[in-house]
């Protein structure tokens, strides 16, 4: 590891708040996108199954 300790990794010589908030945003927004796509897919699957049941 480039840093001497986990504390130094967290602090990043004073740049920690900038770096960690950027990574947090990247992950939060991309996870939100995947979660939304997945929940829409599950909803559509449920509706398609209900359609098939109604028409059987």
């Amino acid at each position: 590891m480039y840093f001497e300790s986990l504390g130094a990794l967290w602090d990043m010589a004073g740049h920690g708040p900038y770096v960690w908030s950027s990574y947090g945003l990247f992950f939060a927004l991309l996870c939100l996108n995947v979660w939304h796509a997945r929940s829409q897919k599950l909803k559509a699957l449920k509706q398609a199954k209900a359609f098939v049941r109604r028409n059987q």
């Binding site: 829409q40 897919k41 699957l45 398609a48 359609f51």
Partner: peptide, 28 residues
Amino acid sequence: LVVLMRTRTQILQTQSGTSWLMQHRDIT
């Protein structure tokens, strides 16, 4: 990955009356 997921969702929404989808293992 996200484009595949969202496109497949739209296919599910628009093709629900078709025979191939009604017989697909995701539905049955």
